[in-house]
Amino acid sequence: MKTYLAQRLTIAVLTLLGMSMVIFALLRLAPGDIVDILFSTAGYVSPSEKQAIMKELGIDRPYWVQYLDWLRQIGTGDLGKSYRYDVPAWQIVRPLLPVTLELAALSMVFAVLFGVPTGVVSAVRQDSTLDYVLRVFSLAGLSMPAFWLGMVIILGLVTWFRWIPPLTYVSPMEDLKLHAVQFLLPALAVGYRSSALIMRITRSSLLEVLREDYIRTARAKGQSGRVVVWRHALKNAMLPVVTVIGIEFAFLIGGLVVTETVFNLPGVARFLVQAILWRDYPIVQNLVMFIAIVVILSNLLVDMLYGVLDPRVRYGG
């Protein structure tokens, strides 16, 4: 178990290192830099002034120096300075993190709470009308762009109720109800897709398990259908479901990019798009690394869960 964890952590660190290179390179590949954007807001261009600003920001140095500098910064816990805002990146990034994490967690909770039971019902009632309705409903969730769903929700709210959720982050300390409303709607828009996926996997994996011998044995022993499904089958069917939850978590953060934009929530994902457009390298680099860390940790967590769910799974060594 310990060696396994060490192994996984090593891989995670290597992954992050690789990611840092790719993101760094991609950003440098993008046409234009922060100085071009600054000049575009001023409506003119001056090569000599541009050179001076590049020097000021340190982006006139060779790429490898900049890259090593960034790694060194991460190592010392200092994330550098935002080019656009002229203040330490961490100061900008920090308030964004809880918003995105909460939204992602809430979406996932919603997805599981909705996806697993409907999946079970659908499997138990295989080929019934209810099964078909639920399957179509879930397939629809997989097919709708989350941002469009968000747009339609906002549009509906403003047309029928002339009300929309608050424009800035409402802390739960301030007003719990408003906070809940603010997060629930986007979480619904994002979670729907994930719940659809979870429902499908739950259904198919449960169907497979229900065909196994031991289920038949349990049935033969006279146990009621409900007990068989919930006590025996479901636990064994959860393994692929947990896998999907882990994979889906990464997707979900991607989906937040636009949902945060549509709902104007001050989270990591919305800020990332703005930072990319502004070529604010320190912010983009660090935000992407943050997303990567969250995703890798969630994958690790899922792997750990395997052991809990299935005693046959052993962690190497």
Partner: peptide, 17 residues
């Protein structure tokens, strides 16, 4: 490794930029 660590959309976003 990359795919493990980054959502499809985030990677596509940075790439298309």
């Amino acid at each position: 490794l990359l795919l493990q660590g980054l959502p499809l959309l985030v990677l596509a976003l940075v790439m298309s930029a």
